[in-house]
Structure formats: structure tokens, C-alpha cells
């Protein structure tokens, strides 16, 4: 156990591999460039998206807004000690003062959905939030489409991303290994493991297109060009809600991704996504 803990700490700090290892070419230049463009896009899109959300911090289901029955709302009301932030999910209310509904902007408590540190720009500024959001939405979508083309044209999707039958059969053991923070070594470390593949496929071919399409569904002009979008997502306000859920799914993916990067070797992973070179331990240590 002691040795196990030591090896985890070594991986997080980046001092791996400790023993004999060899370097392989892990990520192609296309994957690396595409990855970092995505990282920047997601940061800008998430923060500017929260800015846009703050202009009307409530979500609905259906074609239009039933103002009395939001699925989620972040509002403020006056309390004895000033503004109280109220998060309402369905009919349940939670006091979220300081973070959601009401939070401090330059030391002054303000009624705002998400706090200033999470939005771009910080202060309430819808017009600017929209400019940032649409600029990076274009970059994100173009980058995504180019990556798709690359992934299929160069066999990256079939070779590296799609889970194999073996992957699926060993999924149980894979999950246990992940929970014990045991990661593949030797030959097995050359490929993505089954959980990695599933996560990447879900994000690249599921979440990515879903967030773009629900975003487009919110555009009245796109609805006139492709009315089917409204049918697929059950209306504009539903699309807005799904878009919001997608955004937080990306955030969830990001958090898990960062934790896994660190637990499986911060420096080794980071280097492989910058220079392409990845070190593999060639024996069980």
C-alpha cells in the first residue's frame, strides 16, 4: 500500500516513469493542435456562455418559456442582510448566496446567475459575451469538423478511438483497475484503454455535435432553414436547456480528464500532447 501511494504521488508530480522506459509517438500533430484549440475554445465558450445565461438565468422545457415553471432558475431576493441567492430546481429552493443567484462583483453583492469569476466578461455585459461566444463557436465547430475528417480519413477513429470487442468484454476489470488507480503498462499502454475510448467517443461524436446543434437551434434564422431541429430537440427552450446540460457535461469531462491526466502521469501526458512523445514503462515495477 505504501509503495502504491508512493507511485501515485510520483505520477501526479510527474516523476514517472521511474524504472526502464521507452518513448513512443503517442499523438499525431493534428491531434495535438486540435486538442489545444479545443481546450482554449471550451474555456472561452463556457465562460461566455455563462455570461449569456446570466441575461435570463432560467431554463425551460418546450417551445417557449413558461416563466412560472422553470426547470432551473438562479434568482435573488432581498433578505435582512441584503441580497439572497436562490437556486430553484423544479419546485425545490436552495440558498446559494455568494455563488449562484447573488454574488459579489468588485465587493458589491449583485443579483447575477453565475458569479463574475465564472463569466466572460466578468461584469454583466451580454453583447460582449455574445461576441466572444459566437467567435469561439465558429472556431470550435470548424476545428471539430476538421478533426472528424482527419479521424475518419486517416483511420484514427477506427484504429484508436472505437472500442473493440475485447475492450467491451474487459470493461468490468477496466473499471476496477481505474478505481484502484492502476494504469496499463508495457504493450497495453500504447493504446487508449476501454474507458478512455468510450469517454473520447462520447465527447467527440456525441457531446460535440449535440452542443453545436442545440446552439444552432436557438437561432431563429437557423430554425427557418432547418425546422427539423426544433422537432429533434422538442423546441427552442428545450434546446437551450440541453445546450446548458452539454456545457456542464463538458465541464465534467474536463474535470475527470484533468484528474486522470494527473493520476496517470502529469508530465508524461502533458508532454505527449505537446511534443507527441510518450514514455511507457517496459516492465511491471
Amino acid at each position: 500500500m505504501h509503495a502504491e501511494l508512493k507511485s501515485i504521488i510520483r505520477r501526479v508530480l510527474g516523476v514517472v516513469p521511474a524504472g526502464h522506459s521507452f518513448l513512443i509517438d503517442r499523438h499525431s500533430a493534428t491531434v495535438r493542435v486540435s486538442h489545444w484549440i479545443n481546450a482554449v475554445c471550451l474555456l472561452f465558450l463556457l465562460m461566455s456562455g455563462l455570461q449569456i445565461f446570466n441575461a435570463h438565468p432560467a431554463l425551460y422545457w418546450g417551445k417557449s418559456s413558461d416563466f412560472d415553471h422553470p426547470i432551473l432558475s438562479l434568482t435573488a431576493r432581498n433578505g435582512p442582510q441584503g441580497l439572497v441567492g436562490v437556486t430553484q430546481i423544479g419546485s425545490r429552493q436552495f440558498d446559494t448566496t455568494g455563488i449562484l443567484g447573488a454574488s459579489d462583483e468588485d465587493g458589491v453583492r449583485m443579483a447575477r446567475g453565475f458569479p463574475a469569476w465564472a463569466t466572460l466578461p466578468g461584469p454583466q455585459w451580454l453583447a460582449m459575451g455574445r461576441l466572444w461566444h459566437f467567435a469561439f463557436a465558429w472556431l470550435f465547430a470548424i476545428n471539430g469538423v476538421l478533426f472528424w475528417i482527419y479521424a475518419f480519413a486517416r483511420g484514427h477513429a477506427g484504429r484508436d478511438l472505437m472500442p473493440t470487442g475485447g475492450d467491451i468484454r474487459h470493461l468490468g476489470r477496466e473499471i476496477l483497475d481505474h478505481l484502484r488507480l492502476k494504469f496499463p503498462k508495457g504493450e497495453a499502454a500504447r493504446r487508449y484503454n476501454a474507458l478512455q475510448k468510450l469517454a473520447y467517443v462520447a465527447v467527440i461524436f456525441g457531446l460535440g455535435p449535440l452542443v453545436v446543434l442545440t446552439g444552432l437551434t436557438m437561432s431563429p434564422t437557423m430554425d427557418s432553414a432547418f425546422p427539423a431541429l426544433l422537432w429533434i430537440f422538442a423546441g427552442r427552450q428545450s434546446a437551450r436547456t440541453i445546450h446548458f446540460i452539454c456545457a456542464f457535461s463538458f465541464l465534467g469531462f474536463f474535470v475527470v480528464h484533468i484528474v486522470m491526466v494527473m493520476l496517470s502521469g502529469t508530465w508524461n501526458n502533458l508532454r505527449s500532447m505537446i511534443t507527441g512523445r510518450y514514455a511507457i514503462e517496459d516492465h511491471d515495477g
Binding site: 449569456i52 445565461f53 441575461a55 435570463h56 432560467a58 425551460y60 417551445k63 417557449s64 418559456s65 416563466f67 451580454l126 455574445r130 436557438m218 431563429p220 427552442r236 427552450q237 437551450r240
Partner: peptide, 12 residues
């Protein structure tokens, strides 16, 4: 028709 406000809400 559906009226879409820049703030994010819609009314028919």
C-alpha cells in the same frame, strides 16, 4: 410565431 429575446427566453 415565436418571439426570441436576446436574453434567451421565448414567447409565442
Amino acid at each position: 410565431t415565436r418571439h426570441d429575446c436576446v436574453e434567451g427566453w421565448s414567447c409565442i
